[in-house]
Design a protein around this nucleic acid. Sequence first.
DNA 1: AGACGATGCGGAC
DNA 2: TCCGCCTCGTCTT
Length: 278
Amino acid sequence: MPEGHSIHRAAADQRRDLAGDRIAVASPQGRFVDAARIDGRVLIEVEAHGKHLFYRFGGAGRARTPIWVHVHLGLFGRFRRLTGVARAEPRGQVRMRLAGPRATFDLSGPTACDVVDPAGRAAVLGRLGPDPLRPEDDGGNSGLAVERLGASRRPIGAVLLDQAIVAGVGNVYRAEVLFLAGVDPRRPASSLSLEDRTQIWHLSRVLLAQGVRDRRIDTADFLTGHAPENRGDAPPRRRRRGERTLVYGQPTCRRCDGGVRTVDLGGRRLYWCPTCQA
DNA sequence: AGACGATGCGGAC
DNA sequence: TCCGCCTCGTCTT
């Protein structure tokens, strides 16, 4: 699941259902050793930055410095939202359970789930480029993102996955963004025009926003003009697996029907259409 | 029942 | 550049 859209979706859900309440924090599986330090505090805020999630908890006793929990889902991490009778028994390996009066969220399989101090949080944020899903990054930093996208001679397909350049794009959205931009992922980033780089940033924003809104990646509508922003409030039709992307994981291109090419780039599989992305 | 792969990343070499 | 970690749904036997 987890590219930036999953993290922003989780932050919005948990902000809505948990923030402002006293939260019972536990680690049924036991590997979140610091759960007891957070248990019973009030959750003040949930922040998403790229693929990173931060929870700010209120002080306990004399402690004044904010205390944060940092979560990164990695490849396998996921949240389950539980309400009512379903809330009792954790299913599978649950690293962290956040239980408020209104809902419970179970976290399993994260790469990171740790208590950090403000300096620790700042260190993580310092490694991240602008996040297409953060409004202030689009307003104030889109120029920075567009500039960074062209600052390297590495292939644009590698640059777009670099969280220090743009924070939140993962392997699926990389393929889909470059496909819709009509850009060959092997091209050196520094050879792209300003228009290309601006378009890549813009598409990153629009496609990630689709994922937040629909709770899953489904870019098929962007080919037919039925993208979420044109759809009103109609709920998205649930497509079958394998029908939700234009090139990612596809044997043939959904636009021209030609063969999709793949190459392993840094251990990640990159998909593109050599005709539509010439 | 068991194998396999996945939307990620950091560290060792 | 490769390896290891994290978990679970899906596929194969």
